[in-house]
């Protein structure tokens, strides 16, 4: 038995929004793989839950008319990894969420939950950041859209007001077409572990297949929230791919991250990982973008 005061099972997004307003202090629960564990640990003792588990409205992965890929936040990691649209257009996301937990967890954990928890170690975060993900947030007074990058407010804190729900994640075509990406999760074990550091890269090459036309770099656990390294990105654009460039990327990224020491790893080790993984992820992304193997 979970230590919960009350659970309300919402029948629609609208119903869930009303319930969140009506039930003071209530917490939204989707797949449950974070919330129920927190409850089990006694952290949310006696809480009130509004369940949006299995709401049809929040599922579905579709391509919109302008080529934007829309992902329902209620989609599970397994469904995302296996979905043909994801495999064809944004495989970096399918690969990234396939690194989370284990198979049973990925069968229930949702991408919306992963985003809204706002933790820096979220495996979907880096990939979504380099894909320029746009979030659609619905509340009592309507909808608003903002880039994922602006959604993070601090460790575990996101820009969601009382009664607001993430209702769609969109990847615009300009942010994936022609791109190749890669995500590397560094953890103590190959499964059932939280990232010590996560690094995601997405890039596009010029027609010569050697010059970087567009470059995006993001990290998890390298700062209080998942972050994109804008300065490094700007410095890399227009440069030819070389092993020296890969080293340069690592050094530049180091200036933009602020990892800390935790029981998992020291700050210094995480800095080393920032250098090493950014180069490796970039090399792999170059390959995926149709470039030469370095």
């Amino acid at each position: 038995m979970f230590d919960v005061q009350k659970i309300y099972r919402a029948t629609s997004v609208e119903d869930a929004i009303r319930a969140l307003h009506r039930m003071e202090g209530s917490i939204l629960i989707s797949g449950g793989s974070d919330v129920l564990i927190k409850i089990r640990e006694g952290k949310l003792a006696g809480c009130t839950l509004v369940s949006i588990n299995d709401l049809q409205e929040l599922t579905g992965i579709v391509m919109e008319e302008d080529g934007t890929i829309k992902i329902g936040p209620g989609e599970t990691f397994t469904r995302i990894t296996e979905h043909p649209l994801i495999r064809q257009h944004i495989p970096v996301l399918g690969h990234a969420v396939d690194q989370a937990g284990g198979p049973q967890l990925r069968n229930v954990a949702t991408i919306g939950g992963n985003v809204c928890n706002g933790v820096t170690s979220a495996d979907s975060a880096g990939a979504l950041l380099v894909l320029g993900a746009q979030l659609e947030i619905t509340g009592r007074d309507g909808m608003r859209t903002l880039p994922l990058e602006q959604f993070y407010k601090g460790p575990g804190r996101v820009d969601l007001n009382r009664g607001e729900i993430l209702t769609a994640i969109r990847i615009p075509q300009k942010d994936y077409q022609g791109f190749g990406g890669h995500y590397i999760k560094y953890a103590q074990r190959a499964a059932m572990d939280i990232a010590t550091l996560g690094c995601a890269v997405s890039l596009r090459l010029e027609e010569d297949r050697q010059t970087i036309a567009d470059y995006r770099l993001a990290f998890g656990v390298a700062a209080p929230t998942p972050i994109r390294c804008r300065k490094t990105e700007a410095a890399v654009m227009g440069k030819p791919v070389s092993s020296r460039l890969l080293e340069e990327i690592g050094q530049l990224a180091l200036g933009e991250v602020s990892p800390r020491t935790s029981w998992r790893a020291s700050k210094e080790f995480r800095q080393r990982l920032v250098c090493e993984l950014s180069g490796r992820a970039t090399a792999q992304a170059v390959k995926h973008a149709g470039g030469e193997t370095l």
Partner: peptide, 13 residues
């Protein structure tokens, strides 16, 4: 048809 850990799955679901 999907393998799920039932310890973190609410019966009402």
């Amino acid at each position: 048809g999907k393998a799920v850990d039932t310890c973190i799955y609410l019966s009402l679901w």
